[in-house]
Design a binder for these strands. Structure first.
Lengths: 309, 309
DNA sequence: GTGAAAGCGCTAACAC
DNA sequence: GTGTTAGCGCTTTCAC
């Protein structure tokens, strides 16, 4: 007997030893079949390449492990159809819960009806959700830049980060400034193009990008324009991934508590399992600003020679 | 009946429709139990944060999907004990094969005896292995730098990349140069410290780092020393991850065909399943050099003003 | 072609 | 405390 209730110590030892000698291994699939639960969580990652997700997964795994749950990861490579397939596979596998990291997937409610489901890092209707407060994050970024004396603070927006955009807009308005927005993407390339447009039109002295990857692209565009960061243009990202912390980059960035978000997701699943009929819960965590050397005060021309220390 | 042999068309249609209406979903765990196979591959990733692995996983997934296999990912966060646990969980789950990405795990042979196993991106004894030719990769890097006129070409070494170090040493010897090595690590931090030591002692004009992450750390150290890349010091990384391609970084790097390595791993597993007794196979793929702007010719002092385009 | 029966390795429920 | 039994949902084998 494996993890047992009332068995004599002697027998247990004997059995355990025999098991070890024979190389016996309990068959989890048989156990799952009879228990009608697999103790497994399916995690759909929209993009394995984005370090943001790796860090959320760390949190997921830590919490899952503590609760004796396994995690199986799948990815749909940002393609709705592939994501649907992956989710279907999870369902057939009989996972006990589903974590959807920034899914592109349509019809999430149907899935949620079949199995406890939580959406992370993206807002969704009629489902449990774990997100950071994007409006606050954007506000932090704008306030930081405004305090540094910037008046022309631009934003690189992207599909999927509308909340940040909205937060930016209202913060800008609150500070009595003018909104300056370019559409980009949550990628290096998208940030690059967005920044190029901003630089050509608006002469911003600061740029708040929708995420770190886009901020990196913006950094390139700024340098290619012969300008320096933060000498000529201050730059703020979002997510505070390890990319931001690489010293060659040293990007000021809004930090989402990724680890905590991962843990919250597992907790939400558990809560849902216990109260299947409860109304959808919205778990919002609080971001903070991690200030590094890509943002500096908007000093007079003479002082902005180069970025070097 | 699901994917069937001899059933009348009419019945099949009827059944399929009924299934759809009832929301019937075949139970994979029951099927696995009776079939004694799960059509699942367990993939152990040593470090989810290293983008190198994400790209290998893409290849794995593509090949697995074509063969009707599922993938479950697990990570041991570079800790041997945690890796062992993860592998044990895979075994209990009854996976049909195991892919170990740069495992730290001891006793791999025992695992391989229990289930088809392939080690990727790290050399191992008595097991099927998929690696790139590190010696050649290092040779490419050194040859490139030597051709650019560099004579003081240093290397940042790390545990786990001895082959690259050895390749570096023999290439350096072949070019009649002097080896200049600092111990570092496959991380930003490790590269930073390694480069600091090299800069303090050897006055290298070029640095070949054990991987891209370490190269980024080196980049920081170089800049902090008041030097520029590639003006004063040329820099070459290894892996050619997307980090290298970010334009603000534009790192010359040795490319491993990651996607192909992922596919090869799945193929190797299949081969092993068909011939369990065959001697361990070593699959070696060929790296190539991706040249970007972090490496340039070793020009006279006057010409090395800055890194700008 | 189609239905019935056995059994995969386990857990739970119930006797001993 | 310990042995026995039924049955999880499927595939396979063998009758029909």
């Amino acid at each position: 007997m494996r993890g047992a209730p009332n068995v004599s110590e002697a027998r247990r030892a004997a059995v355990l030893q025999a098991a070890a000698e024979l190389g016996y291994r309990p068959n989890l699939v048989a156990r799952s079949l009879v228990e009608r639960r697999t103790r497994t969580l399916g995690v759909l990652v929209s993009d394995l390449h984005n370090p943001f997700f790796a860090e959320v997964i760390d949190g997921l795994q830590a919490e899952a492990q503590e609760r004796g749950l396994r995690i199986v990861l799948g990815t749909g490579r940002r393609d709705p159809a592939e994501e649907a397939e992956t989710v279907e596979a999870f369902l057939q596998q009989d996972v006990d819960g589903l974590v959807l990291l920034s899914p592109r997937l349509p019809g999430i409610e149907d899935v949620a009806a079949a199995v406890p489901t939580v959406v992370v890092a993206t807002r969704a209707e009629h489902v449990d959700v774990v997100v950071n407060d994007d409006a606050l994050g954007a506000e932090l970024a704008v306030a930081h830049l405004a305090e540094l004396g910037h008046e022309r603070i631009a934003h690189i927006a992207a599909a999927g980060t509308q909340e940040r955009r909205a937060g930016y807009e209202s913060a800008i308005a609150r500070h009595g400034l003018e909104a300056l927005i370019a559409d980009g993407d949550v990628t290096d390339e998208g940030g690059y193009r967005g920044a190029q447009r901003l630089l050509a039109n608006g002469r911003p002295t600061a740029i708040f990008a929708c995420n770190d990857l886009a901020a990196l692209g913006a950094l390139t565009a700024i340098e290619e324009a012969g300008l320096s960061v933060p000498g000529d243009v201050s730059l703020v990202g979002y997510d505070n991934t390890y990319l931001a912390s690489i010293r060659h980059i040293a990007l000021t960035s809004v930090d989402q508590p990724r680890h905590r978000m991962g843990r919250l997701a597992v907790e939400a699943l558990d809560a849902r399992r216990e109260a299947p009929g409860a109304p959808p819960a919205l778990h919002t965590v609080t971001p903070h600003l991690e200030i590094r050397s890509s943002s500096a005060s908007h000093a007079p021309r003479a002082a902005r020679a180069s970025r070097a220390p």
